[in-house]
């Protein structure tokens, strides 16, 4: 349903052009959940903001192809893109505390989105808002539409944001770390909610996170990103159980085990992600990689069909 091909995003800066996304390709099928994992700065958010058409930095250059149900989104007229945003593609952002305009009630804000895309009266739109809030399990929705964002808890706000994102039945929902800012118990409820909504609305979901635990809960397929490229992709089982790329393995190693002896220290990845201004010529993970060898001075391609990894090791082993 969503086809991204060879997406490249670069920014003009004082120190020259910086390639933030370098040749990323992926697909999302109908009502599928694609998990996107990576450290901060790996380009997971920026590549999906490009799908939303929300990169409005005049210094940004977006190349490649993004197709939603066969329709090319790169270079689409802003007016046309605006009609798609909020109706065909919706996005939930990380921090529910700041995601809603503080001066309007949540009912008003949900109704605003419905009225932006459909010919519908204010009363009808508010009635829809009540139904949506009920659907995301907000207690007493008839009264809740008159609440301002600051009068709700973080979890309730995130539910309201999700209700707003779903208000026009989008085909694709992009969730950018929707649980990171929430308590663990609330996190689980929100994850349940998103799974339930996928079932009821048949929306496809792209789930951005840096939490492998959330991936294990949610995703059908997984894509691991590192410094603007995809380093590995496959089904959830493939990625979690037989990771091929050393970076994916390192990410999995950094999760505390549930059973067995508790390790003294969690294993972490040495070093920090490379600066985009100064990317290594070859594999960009090589400087931090425990199993690097001579060939890593070249850039590995993402190979291997369905379960693909951008690493020479799989060939070697």
């Amino acid at each position: 349903m969503l086809e991204v091909r060879d997406l490249r995003i670069s920014f003009r800066t004082e120190h020259g052009r910086v390639q933030a996304i370098d040749g990323v390709s992926f697909d999302v099928g109908e009502s599928e959940i694609l998990g996107v994992v990576g450290e901060s700065g790996s380009g997971k958010t920026i590549s999906l903001l490009a799908v939303m058409g929300l990169i409005n930095d005049p210094n940004a250059r977006i190349e490649g192809s993004i197709k939603l149900r066969g329709r090319e989104l790169v270079g689409l007229e802003p007016r046309e893109m605006r009609k798609l945003r909020g109706r065909e593609i919706a996005m939930i952002f990380q921090d529910p505390m700041t995601a809603m305009t503080p001066v309007y009630t949540i009912g008003w804000q949900i109704a605003e989105q419905i009225m932006a895309h459909e010919k519908i009266g204010k009363a009808a739109a508010l009635a829809r808002a009540v139904d949506l809030l009920a659907e995301v399990n907000i207690p007493n929705p008839r009264e809740a539409i008159h609440r301002f964002p600051h009068q709700l808890s973080g979890g309730m706000r995130q539910r309201a944001v999700i209700a707003m994102a779903l208000s026009c039945n989008p085909a694709l929902l992009i969730a950018d770390e929707p649980t990171t800012a929430l308590d663990v118990t609330v996190q689980a409820q929100i994850l349940d909610l998103i799974r339930k909504l996928r079932r009821d609305h048949k929306s496809a979901v792209v789930f951005i996170t840096h939490d492998m635990g959330v991936i294990a809960e949610m995703a059908d397929r997984v894509m691991v990103m590192y410094s603007g490229r995809i380093v590995e992709r496959g089904t959830k089982a493939e990625i979690l159980l037989e990771p091929r790329h050393p970076y994916t393995r390192a990410l999995l190693d950094s999760i505390p085990p549930l059973e067995g002896e508790k390790p003294k220290r969690l294993r972490s990845i040495p070093g920090s992600p490379p600066s985009l201004f100064d990317l290594p010529k070859g594999c960009s993970f090589a400087p931090r990689c425990p199993s690097r060898f001579e060939r890593c001075a070249e850039r590995p391609a993402l190979e291997g069909g369905k379960h693909a990894a951008a690493c020479f090791l799989k060939v070697a082993s």
Partner: peptide
């Protein structure tokens, strides 16, 4: 950003 994501002008 949320308002933009909603598709408002």
């Amino acid at each position: 950003r949320t308002a933009r994501a909603k598709g408002l002008s």
